[in-house]
Amino acid sequence: MEFVFDWEANEENIRELKIFIKENKGKKGALMAVLHKAQDLFGYLPIEVQRMISEELRIPLSEIYGVATFYSQFSLIPKGKYKIGICLGTACYVKGAQEILEKLKEVLGIDVGQTTPDKKFSIDATRCLGACGLAPVMMINDDVYGRLTVDDIEEIINKYK
């Protein structure tokens, strides 16, 4: 699915990012911080924004694209309004996280790494969230759901619909 970047709607964000870049330009290794900021502002890293960062930081676009695609937290497509992260760490896996994930995919009709067409939900399989005592665990934005069973999923998703 193509997502078109809306310059007008993001005018304010662009300005904020430019200020952030200016403030951090002199810092060694500023690129990671800038990309984090951009991801926070836009929810993903549109190629248009990467191009702008390239010009502002005087770093080749190829290098920026390389960094943006290397790290799994950076995304090239918009994430849903509700970002679902299901933990596939070992403790969650042995307690049935895979089945939870399958159910989630079934309920939302999308695969891992995808976003629903209405941009409401996206699913990511995350690395260990460090809440192994609650395994299996998933997060929807900042809310943590622990000790999940397959039967809980539909009800939880319905809360956000």
């Binding site: 060694k28 290794g29 500023a30 690129l31 990671m32 911080a33 990309l35 984090h36 290098e63 390389g66 960094v67 290397f70 790290y71 799994s72 937290q73 950076f74 995350t126 690395r127």
Partner: peptide
């Protein structure tokens, strides 16, 4: 503070330093 961005290999010392330097880890 320097934040990672979800790459396990960055726990390896030299990859971690590459990442702090703003490169692929």
């Amino acid at each position: 503070l320097r934040l990672g961005a979800g790459a396990f290999v960055c726990g390896e010392g030299t990859a971690l330093m590459e990442s702090i330097e703003g490169k692929r880890g």
